[in-house]
Design a binder for these strands. Structure first.
Lengths: 196, 196
DNA sequence: AATGAAAGGATTAAGCC
DNA sequence: GGCTTAATCCTTTCATT
């Protein structure tokens, strides 16, 4: 495989600024043909670098309600459960999980009361306490500034360089830092598959 | 003018899920013609509801570095200054301003040390203290679920309904809840312009 | 506000280097 | 991986209701 290169980064920056930009315009900007740009974007999607094309909405112009930043102090061991419950709360825009086990989320709530919302959605035993802070402003800065590429080897976790390898197994694309990691991964995959 | 309606919301949801979806596909879904969909999307952009078409990137696959949530306790009166300084820090993705005058931001830092970064960018007098928390996960949920439409009158701030008015002044689109707010706004705008 | 028809662009597939 | 060509498909403009 080939590592992501400067051209990929350029393409990403152009798409971040306007995801509906025609591919031939991108092609001009990066000195490639439109089909090649299309291929690269397909690969960026496959690699999971591009999660989706989407729209940045100004929610303050859309929805009533108060923007808040909520900090949940979660009981040990129940972080992922709480995190996925928070995903289901209406109006949640961003979720952060801290290394010390808090779940912080940014939401716009139509009825100011957060307490019934939380107790309706979360298992109250899982959250020791919480802080709610009103927000007066929030902004999203999607520019991939200062980005360095770092794809991880799916076998050992090391950085994948241009010497790396990739395989498509059962329709999924995997990447490896070297051929031995690749072989090892494929063996183990095969074993697991046999076992199942 | 016309208030935003259910169809606009449907269009937004379709674009949030895939901003490169062809307009004729959206047209089918909402039972309109492609040109009409195009017109509506143009209007959503003009109204500022749609800020941009963009890409949701998985930065953990892109950049080295540690994701952190930083909480700056800002000296009274210096919030907007600090906020705009934070915008210039490399790797900052989200900024939140709390009602009690803190600036919270989410960033991915390539060199783990945040102290030199802050002292290099911010006036240290403006920030009393700060907390830094490491993040293990973060997600963006752009779905406009549970949204109610609420455009605000640019004169009085009330909700703009279908009885409202709109004007284009010097190329910008403004909306008002009634014709008297519209007239008042236009008068004041004219006065300000004369004065300048 | 919305539409159909049509022109002008953009995307994709196929074959090749 | 990348290119060109060619066919297909999408977007936008315009006249019309």
């Amino acid at each position: 495989m080939r590592e992501l290169d400067e051209t990929d980064l350029e393409i990403l920056q152009l798409l971040v600024a306007d995801a509906r930009r025609p591919y031939n315009e991108i092609a001009d900007a990066v000195d490639l043909s439109p089909p090649t740009v299309s291929d690269r974007i397909d690969r960026l999607k496959e690699l999971g670098v591009v999660r989706r094309f989407t729209v940045d909405l100004d929610r303050s112009r859309l929805s009533e309600g108060v923007a808040v930043l909520v900090d949940l102090h979660v009981e040990p061991g129940r972080v992922s459960e709480v995190r996925s419950d928070v995903e289901d709360i209406d109006g949640v825009e961003h979720i952060f999980v801290t290394a010390d086990g808090n779940v912080v989320f940014h939401a716009r709530l139509r009825n100011g009361a957060i307490e019934p919302l939380l107790s309706g959605t979360l298992d109250t035993d899982a959250v020791r306490e919480y802080d709610v802070r009103l927000l007066t402003d929030s902004a999203w800065h999607p520019e991939p500034r200062g980005v360095e590429f770092a794809l991880e080897c799916d076998e050992c976790g090391n950085t994948v360089t241009s010497e790396g390898e990739s395989s498509r197994i059962d329709g999924e694309l995997y990447q490896f830092c070297c051929s031995s990691c690749q072989a090892r991964f494929e063996e183990q995959y095969e074993e697991l598959k046999q076992a199942a």
